[in-house]
Write a protein that binds this DNA or RNA. Structure first.
Lengths: 101, 101
DNA sequence: CGTGTAAGGAATTCTGACACG
DNA sequence: CGTGTAAGGAATTCTGACACG
């Protein structure tokens, strides 16, 4: 829906935008760090969101992290966000009950 | 700067996004209705802004307008916007002067 | 005028592999 | 593990032209 999430770029442009080599980008896909979609012919299509993610990955690689570590960081981050969401919902439910009492 | 203005898409994706044929898109470029940039190799690169413009063009073509008419409409629109801007600036200058008196 | 199409060539991307480390 | 590279093939795009209208 959002422009940022639309998979529209080929790998060459993503390479220019991120400064990463095509080889690196393909490798990060193999490691499951990004998930570009494909055209019917098989060419990868990336979103601006993917580009942002790649820049973040590049920074972490520079810090000496390994791909599997980066992947785990993302997993943890996602869990934290989900937890925060659940807490918020619980809080709102509690608030609603308090109003009824 | 903005994602919307970044020239990142090849003509095939633009064709999918707009429903227009590549032929039509190239023709609208020749007529000066859109101005994609080029890669070093010569392939066209479009922005989401271009895509929006193309959808607008497609609608006007369906209404029976000719390319030069569409181009003129854009010229008029731009002039109006510039006028509005000038009016606004003048208004603010006048307001500032009134405050000093 | 606006668009389809076949033609030939060039740019782009793809995969699997070898290499280094 | 992460990345460079040469290899061969396939998908994508490009231009100029002919066609129709």
């Amino acid at each position: 829906m959002d422009y940022k999430e639309k998979k529209v770029m080929t790998i060459g442009i993503v390479s220019e935008l991120t400064g990463l080599s095509e080889r690196q980008i393909r490798y990060y896909e193999v490691r499951g760090l990004i998930t570009p979609s494909r055209s019917n012919g098989g060419t990868r299509k990336f979103s601006f969101s993917d580009v942002e993610k790649l820049v973040d990955i590049a920074n972490k690689m520079e810090d000496g992290l390994q791909t599997f570590e980066i992947k785990e960081m993302e997993r943890r981050k996602r869990r934290k966000e989900e937890e925060a969401k659940r807490r918020m919902i619980r809080g709102q439910i509690n608030a609603a009950f308090r109003l009824r009492e």
